[in-house]
């Protein structure tokens, strides 16, 4: 019986010490992890809205979900003189091949897409991961439409995007996330401006 208590005690002590040490390390690394996340976000926002001088969280963001995901964050892109240039909208779509796809879409004040950047993308290397490549992302730039579709037979119309070959699910999910940002712009941001 005594041996059982000793065993339990040693195991408990090891677990307790481990837990305490981890708690300590968690607090030490919390700061740099948060800083890194913020930095990544800023870098992504800058990449989709090159002209903006700085970004500010938009006041009064309403909850908005679209087919497949939600809008997570809306930033206002401003120039040095605090003038509003456009928006950076973060959307997440839950139907990626490897998990959620989270991306930022830069939209000018008139609703033209200025660029997209991924915050999380866990697709298959060599197929879905090609979404990160310039060749795919740049297709979105300059489009000024209400919603986008993808095609496998060569994009011709203004609202068409060439699918990544072998990664239709990824393409559809990315398109859906961008469409989410576009419809938020039309249904919420535009209406706000008119009031």
């Amino acid at each position: 019986m005594k041996a059982v208590f000793k065993d339990a005690f040693v195991l408990f002590a090891i677990t307790l010490i481990s837990g305490l040490l981890l708690g300590g390390l968690y607090h030490v690394t919390k700061e740099p992890i948060a800083r890194e996340a913020k930095l990544r976000k800023e870098r992504a926002a800058k990449a989709v809205f090159i002209e903006a001088e700085h970004f500010a969280a938009k006041d009064g963001v309403v909850e908005y979900s679209f087919d497949g995901g939600e809008v997570e964050e809306v930033l206002e892109a401003r120039d040095a003189g605090e003038n509003l240039l456009g928006y950076v909208i973060t959307t997440v779509d839950h139907h990626g091949y490897g998990g959620d796809i989270r991306l930022m879409t830069g939209l000018s004040k008139d609703g033209t897409i200025l660029g997209i950047a991924f915050l999380s993308l866990e697709e298959t290397p060599g197929l879905g991961m090609k979404a990160k490549e310039e060749g795919f992302r740049s297709q979105f730039i300059g489009k000024s439409v209400t919603s986008l579709t993808y095609t496998k037979s060569g994009a011709t119309a203004e609202n068409e995007i060439d699918a990544i070959s072998g990664a239709t699910i990824t393409t559809s999910s990315v398109t859906s996330a961008v469409n989410g940002a576009l419809s938020y712009y039309q249904e919420v941001l535009l209406k706000e401006g008119k009031e």
């Binding site: 065993d7 040693v10 195991l11």
Partner: peptide, 10 residues
């Protein structure tokens, strides 16, 4: 220090 019986969990 680790008793043999709880070796693997430890």
């Amino acid at each position: 220090v680790i008793p043999d019986r709880v070796r693997v969990p430890s």
